[in-house]
């Protein structure tokens, strides 16, 4: 299943105003892995996530999804493979109703009408919001919006899920629901977050980013035990591991 590989080789990126965001980043994520990118605000998490489906193109080095490098020519295929969940679900739900939003991706794939309807129904039932089908997105609560956004992403049947701060702005109950939902997914999961407890629940592997560089890459429990390193990166041991 080599097409589920996600790989960065010597990836560097600076914003147009000259601010460096990523410096010589290397990692390799294999099929079915769940990996959390953690780091303080401004450490480069979002920039990195934006490279995974070609919104940003590498300025130096490369990103490979499966055996395909991310370039302008390959980007549309890459976007079918990598589903992206945004930080603010309002940005992702732009259609008049939830079901229209979920249908947006499949319709763009050129699927026949009944197949589109089937995908909409399936995706909504996976995240448990069939009852919200005809509701306009701006009327939903934070947790419902997040669920609807996830339904939109999985309707495109991606192999890899990339998520940017999936638990931000969620109340504790919705956050718990989200964690249970994501834990049930068999996709390769890549999560950028500073919710370290969420990382502890969902990911067996953690990559720590600090000022655009990979500071550490390893098993979740080991990394979260290294309090000194966490503090240096403006992070803190997950509450559950503090005694």
């Amino acid at each position: 299943m080599s097409h589920h590989l996600v790989e960065a080789r010597n990836l560097s990126f600076s914003y147009p105003d000259g601010t460096p965001a990523l410096k010589d980043v290397n990692f390799r994520i294999t099929h079915g892995e769940s990996v959390a990118f953690i780091g303080a605000s401004g450490a480069g998490k979002s920039t990195l996530i934006h490279h995974l489906n070609g919104y940003l193109m590498p300025q130096a080095g490369e990103v490979r999804i499966g055996e395909v490098p991310v370039t302008r020519e390959t980007v549309s295929g890459i976007r079918r493979t990598v589903g992206m969940l945004f930080q603010d679900p309002d940005d992702q739900l732009f259609m008049p109703t939830v079901s229209d939003d979920v249908a947006f991706g499949p319709l763009n794939l050129g699927l026949p009408r009944d197949e589109v309807d089937q995908r909409v129904t399936d995706s909504l039932s996976v995240v448990g919001i069939e009852h919200l089908r005809d509701r306009p997105p701006y009327k939903l609560s934070g947790g419902e919006k997040r669920a609807a956004a996830i339904a939109c992403v999985i309707a495109g049947a991606p192999d890899i899920l990339a998520m940017d701060e999936p638990s931000s702005d969620l109340d504790p109950w919705s956050r718990r629901q989200l964690i249970q939902l994501l834990a049930g997914f068999k996709h390769t999961k890549i999560i950028a977050t500073h919710d370290l407890d969420l990382a502890l629940d969902l990911c067996e592997r953690v990559i720590v980013l600090h000022k655009g560089e990979v500071r550490k890459d390893g098993k979740t429990r080991e990394i979260f035990s290294d309090e000194e390193m966490l503090l240096e990166c403006h992070l803190e041991k997950p509450l559950r591991m503090q005694t």
């Binding site: 976007r79 940005d91 732009f94 947006f104 991706g105 763009n108 794939l109």
Partner: peptide, 22 residues
């Protein structure tokens, strides 16, 4: 800034300038 993020979200789901709806 929001418009740019929305465009990103659209293109992630295969948006090519044409709006298809049911």
């Amino acid at each position: 800034a929001r418009a740019q993020r929305i465009y990103l979200a659209m293109s992630c789901r295969g948006f090519d300038g044409a709006f298809r709806s049911r």
